[in-house]
């Protein structure tokens, strides 16, 4: 069996539709991960032992269990608790929740990296807590971790094919569907592989540029 270019042309629109779903899921999931991750980090810094410990263990639990099972959990278990989600929504929430535990670690590292003198200066200036965080610490912390956060966007993009397990027709799902319709799997899945590699090579170049731009040393 050889590569069939006509067939390749025919299936391309379907695959591009799938790619659109993949991109949407990745971006929305990433937005959730960015916001939720920051929330985890800040909650881990509250003085309450109970809150700290709970958040830390919850994050550790989510981080060290597979995304796929978590997706099943969100998609199949939440409806029995009265919260029914569409496949794509469930997928986006699952992705965002899983990666928020990673971004939380990234933010934490960034905050730890802010020099002690900055904290002392903020205290000496008698700044209110809100301004210490919003005006002094977070702008410096986030700047330091922009490239690392970028890496997690790429990682998320590469984990998005898992969404096919909860019936989202994203890129790989679309390829599998066209493949099973025509029983020719070689072309669609190869194209998906090439697309993934192309996107991640390009985006890693982009992250390298970000690294140079935001380098603090």
């Amino acid at each position: 069996m050889t590569w069939d270019w006509n067939y390749t042309g025919e299936i391309l629109p379907d695959l591009l539709n799938g790619l659109r779903v993949t991109v949407v899921a990745t971006l929305l999931g990433y937005a959730i991960a960015l916001v939720l991750g920051l929330a985890w980090t800040l909650l881990q810094r509250t003085p309450s032992r109970l809150v700290n410990g709970t958040v830390r263990w919850a994050a550790e639990f989510i981080r060290s269990t597979p995304l796929l099972v978590q997706l099943f959990f969100v998609f199949y278990v939440l409806p029995s608790w009265g919260l029914t989600l569409g496949p794509l929504t469930a997928g986006i929430i699952g992705l965002g929740l899983h990666y928020s535990t990673y971004t939380a670690e990234v933010y934490r590292a960034g905050i730890d990296d802010v020099p002690r003198g900055q904290w002392e200066a903020a205290t000496a200036l008698n700044l209110p807590r809100r301004r210490v965080w919003l005006g002094v610490v977070l702008p410096q912390a986030v700047r330091r971790v922009v490239p690392t956060l970028g890496n997690y966007l790429i990682a998320m993009f590469k984990d998005s094919p898992l969404l096919l397990a909860v019936n989202v027709v994203e890129l790989l799902g679309a390829a599998y569907q066209t493949g099973s319709r025509t029983l020719q799997f070689l072309e669609p899945i190869t194209i998906v592989g090439v697309l993934f590699i192309a996107v991640s090579v390009l985006s890693s170049l982009l992250v390298r540029r970000l690294e140079r731009r935001y380098a603090t040393y």
């Binding site: 590469k158 898992l162 790989l172 899945i189 998906v192 592989g193 993934f196």
Partner: peptide, 12 residues
Amino acid sequence: FRGAAALVLMYW
């Protein structure tokens, strides 16, 4: 191989 997602590689 870093660019290809594990699942895509597996399907392939």
